[in-house]
């Protein structure tokens, strides 16, 4: 099992070519600021956050993001995209430790 859980949601659920739809990406991540202390040991919990995300639709990058530790734990990010053919939406994200992961969702326009 991967250590990150992700979810991509497209709203509305049904769409056709040319529609501009909402795309939300969420990921389970602690988004540690590096400022918190462990309540038991008193030691500083090292910073650990997602620092970038790349949105790619059928191989074409349409949005990139720089992200900092100031986003809430388990971040949710929403933007729009234009539906242009069946295929896949891929979100690649990198955390502050350099780990790169990806999540994808099938795009199935109706009509």
């Amino acid at each position: 099992m991967s250590n990150s859980k992700t979810l991509i949601k497209i709203k509305p659920n049904t769409y056709k070519n040319g529609d501009v739809v909402k795309v939300s990406f969420m990921v389970m991540h602690p988004m540690e600021t590096g400022l918190r202390k462990d309540k038991k040991t008193g030691e500083v919990i090292p910073a650990d956050y997602i620092k970038s995300a790349k949105f790619e639709y059928n191989g074409k990058v349409f949005t990139t993001m720089n992200i900092w530790e100031t986003l809430s734990v388990n971040p949710v990010i929403t933007t729009y995209m234009t539906i242009d053919g069946a295929g896949s939406l891929k979100v690649t994200f990198t955390d502050s430790k350099g780990t790169v992961e990806e999540s994808s969702e099938e795009i199935k326009p109706k009509g």
């Binding site: 501009v20 100031t70 986003l71 809430s72 949710v76 990010i77 729009y80 995209m81 242009d84």
Partner: peptide, 11 residues
């Protein structure tokens, strides 16, 4: 290609 300029999140 975004079609609309919007960004929503939680900080």
């Amino acid at each position: 290609a975004n079609g609309k300029a919007m960004l929503s999140t939680r900080v």
